[in-house]
Amino acid sequence: MSVTPELAFQQTIPRRLVHRAAVAEVFLTDAVVIGMDHFLVGAQWPRDHALYHPDSQGRSDPLLFAETIRQALVYLAHWHYHVPLGFRFVGRDMDLEITDPGALRVGSEPLPVTLKARWTRVGNDSPRRQGMKLEVVLTVMGAVCGRGSLTLFAVDEKYYRRLRRRTGQDDRPTGDPVARRQRVPAATVGRLRYKDSVLVQGDTAGEWLLRADLDHAILFDHPTDHLPLMVLLEGFRQLGHLLVHDAEVPQSERSPSSLVLLTTECLAWAELDEPTRLLVRADSGAREGSGARRLCIEAVQGDAVVMASEMVWAPDGRGVSEQAAGLLCPLGS
């Protein structure tokens, strides 16, 4: 009879193994092998966080789940699959689903969460390029409450520079193309601090601009030469919150909704020094019966779609239902 190894939650793993500069931004605590390409990964989510704070109903931020998936894939790549630390990781697509939002309610202690993970190789590996996908099931205190996946490829520095067609180390722009425009108030996008807002009103209806502070200690934990996946996800989430929680409706009459499904596809590099427009391509409105709202949003630079996303927001802490989870539009359309 086999015995499943127990996960430890006493301390975080080394920050370099999840590509984080700040120890405070490391959520993983342990990982154990339970079979060929199968793992259990442990993490501890904070009761509060400067950016990923609980919502108005006291539930953990869904993007904590997204960041935990990202950290889990990077950690397993280095720890178990021996991908060199100097490799660059480039995202391809990500999805997550919260099936039981109530299980994410923050209590009197930090939440110990477990990912049951399966690793798959993607494409043909070479010494300089490796493709990988991690699929996970999220459990909190033994209760299954979500699922997700992340696909990316890792390349060595020379390969990365050829892909980027750039020279130098971590080039950063000298100016912000939308610096003169004020970000929308933090409260309208579900954030607490002005500097955490990343949205600026666009020039036309249904258009917004992504304006993230390059010195933000969490969104830009370390220097980078492009907009990271988690920054773009934050822009999508904030725009979803803004659209779902109509500021013109009195707060006492609003029905709080939470993000329960997020699907994204990375289609091109998102440059730091190019204006990034967020375009609402489809909005279902609240569905009668389920009350769920589905949004399709694209991040566009110039004429190129750099990322496409679908989101489902559900009221009253409900999880994804079959009625709410169907795709409203094809990604990248």
Rank of each mutant, 00 (worst) to 15 (best):
A308V: 12
G131D: 01
L96H: 00
L199A: 10
R191E: 04
Q57T: 14
L209D: 10
R254E: 04
G326F: 02
G289W: 04
L111H: 03
T224M: 06
E253D: 11
T276V: 14
Q130G: 00
E288G: 01
A286W: 09
G131A: 05
S252R: 14
L243E: 06
G86N: 11
P127W: 10
G86L: 05
Q130W: 05
L262C: 14
R180S: 12
Y160G: 01
V155A: 10
A21D: 12
L327P: 01
E253R: 15
F65G: 02
R166G: 13
L229M: 15
G42T: 07
R92Q: 15
S255L: 15
T4R: 09
G146Q: 05
P127R: 13
G291A: 09
V306I: 14
A66T: 05
E271Y: 09
L214G: 10
T224I: 05
D156L: 13
L17S: 10
S290L: 10
P127M: 06
I34F: 14
G332F: 07
A187H: 14
H82D: 11
C145Y: 02
L192Q: 13
R92D: 08
R293H: 12
A31L: 03
D221W: 08
L51I: 02
V122G: 00
G240C: 12
L7W: 06
R88C: 02
A292G: 15
R70Q: 03
Y160R: 03
V144P: 04
D61C: 12
Y52A: 12
A304Q: 15
L115Y: 12
R211D: 06
R293E: 09
G131T: 06
Q201T: 09
L219M: 12
A21S: 11
L259K: 00
L76G: 03
H38S: 08
D215I: 06
L40A: 10
L17K: 12
G35D: 04
L28Q: 13
R193W: 15
E265G: 13
I34G: 02
V83E: 10
V155F: 12
G91T: 13
M36T: 15
P256H: 05
L192M: 07
A50Q: 08
L111P: 01
R277G: 07
R88Y: 00
R165S: 08
A72Q: 07
R180K: 02
R318L: 12
D61L: 03
L242C: 02
V200I: 07
Q130T: 03
F153Y: 10
L229A: 15
A299G: 12
L261W: 02
A299K: 07
S60V: 11
W269H: 07
V140G: 01
L40R: 15
V136H: 05
D273L: 04
